[in-house]
Amino acid sequence: MLELSILGFLAEEPLHGYELKERITALSGHVRPVSDGALYPAITRLVTAGKLDQHTAEGAGAAPRRMLSLTERGREDLLERLRHPRQAEITDQVRFNTVLAFLRHLPDPAEQAAVLRRRLEFLNTPASFFYRDGQPVRAEQTDDLFRQGMLRVARATGEAERGWLAEAVAHLDTLSPGACAEPPATAR
């Protein structure tokens, strides 16, 4: 997900490492903070693979900054990652949000819709944090106040996400190939 975030943010504009780190941190939040020990080796791997270009630019102060930009190979990699997210990138909420943050870079609304359909299919599969006799436990089936809270919040969040996903897929299905996806008028 770190590499996807790097590629995604650099598809929008060239950045220096600190700006990139700040944007990635804002996207993943406190849940998955990014360390210099993870970010800079990932940048080095992407530069070595020819997916990023780096050059020195004048800094805001006296020190020059290392600016990063996406190469054509990097853009192709980004698009491939967005077209075919791994299953964990569909099932994990934070990872899916990272995919969602950059999905607009896919030029084909049908490909965008296909990714959203995968997430919708996952959300429509009965699941729970807790199971009894191999069956998902619902909030109404437990006397534990705190587990009830977890399950109720998860259900409400899932219902909201499923509603948005269905609306977004319907909208994308109306677009001609190659059109840019604009949010539906009813989206907030």
Rank of each mutant, 00 (worst) to 15 (best):
G37Q: 11
A181K: 00
N124L: 11
R155K: 04
A166E: 14
G158N: 12
S28I: 06
L151S: 03
R45G: 04
V31S: 08
C180E: 15
L100A: 11
H105E: 08
A38F: 07
V99M: 07
T125G: 09
S5E: 07
R65V: 10
V115I: 08
T142L: 01
Q93V: 08
S69V: 09
E19H: 09
P183E: 07
Q87M: 12
T56R: 14
T157M: 13
A139D: 08
G29D: 12
T71H: 00
G37F: 11
R155T: 05
N97T: 10
P126S: 10
S5A: 13
R138H: 11
L116V: 10
R45H: 08
F122M: 15
D92K: 14
H84T: 06
M150A: 11
P33N: 00
S5Y: 00
A11K: 02
A181G: 00
E140C: 03
L39I: 13
V115H: 03
A38S: 07
Q93S: 09
G163A: 10
M150P: 05
F9N: 00
M150Q: 13
T44R: 14
T157S: 12
D92F: 15
L4I: 01
V153E: 09
R23H: 14
L100N: 03
P33G: 08
L10R: 04
T91R: 00
S128T: 01
Q93M: 15
R95N: 09
R32K: 07
I6C: 03
R83M: 12
T25C: 00
N97E: 15
G178V: 14
E76G: 06
R147Q: 10
L46R: 00
R118I: 06
V99D: 00
K21A: 01
S176I: 14
L7S: 02
P136T: 03
F130T: 04
V99H: 02
A139Y: 04
L123C: 04
Y131P: 03
E3N: 02
P33T: 00
Q93W: 14
Q148G: 13
W164D: 14
R104Q: 02
T186K: 10
A139P: 04
T125A: 11
A181Y: 10
E159A: 09
L15K: 01
L100G: 03
A62P: 06
Q135K: 06
P109C: 11
A57M: 07
L2F: 01
T56V: 13
L78F: 02
A160W: 05
V137A: 00
D92V: 15
T125I: 08
A110V: 01
G178Q: 02
L52H: 10
N97Y: 11
G74F: 12
Q148M: 12
V47F: 09
G134W: 04
R81M: 07
Q135R: 13
P14K: 05
G158L: 06
